[in-house]
């Protein structure tokens, strides 16, 4: 049986969660590997959440927010755009490949984009194989 990755999706309430919702109501199909947690804004995402997810068995984490300039909270996504890449750079030190963490933008009208991003992410993580964290 092929490897089915577990992916945590952290979506902002206004754009990406609504975009995921639209994908659903439009009956678009996407990889069932994603499990979604909603936050009000991608700016709420603490690096600790992501590390926690990897520790709890996630093989990948996808953070989605509004497109730059379209944040419901004006500039929360800019904060995410700084934090997430920084964390990505540090991941290899924990023995986690950078590709396992992805930040992307999905607006409320982009159900199709959400589907694409999720499918791409699933494929990327599938290629990487299960996450094996070093012991200790």
């Amino acid at each position: 049986m092929s490897f089915e990755p577990k992916i945590l999706g952290v979506l902002c309430n206004w754009c990406s969660y609504a975009g995921a919702d639209l994908a659903g109501t439009s009956r678009m199909k996407y990889a069932p590997n994603i499990r979604v947690v909603r936050v009000m804004c991608s700016g709420r995402v603490e690096p600790a959440f992501i590390l926690k997810a990897f520790r709890e068995g996630a093989d990948g984490v996808l953070v989605c927010g509004c497109h730059p300039g379209e944040c419901h909270y004006l500039e929360g996504n800019y904060k995410a755009a700084r934090r997430i890449p920084l964390l990505r750079k540090m991941l290899p030190q924990f023995g986690i490949e950078e590709e396992r963490l992805r930040l992307d933008w999905v607006s409320a009208s982009e159900g199709d984009r959400f589907v694409r991003v999720v499918n791409e992410m699933t494929e990327t993580v599938r290629r990487l194989g299960p996450l094996k964290l070093p012991e200790g």
Binding site: V39, M40, C41, G43, R44, V45, E46, H72, Y73, G76, K79, R83
Partner: peptide
């Protein structure tokens, strides 16, 4: 407005 950026 409750975005939570400060909390993070």
């Amino acid at each position: 407005k409750g975005c939570g950026t400060c909390a993070a």
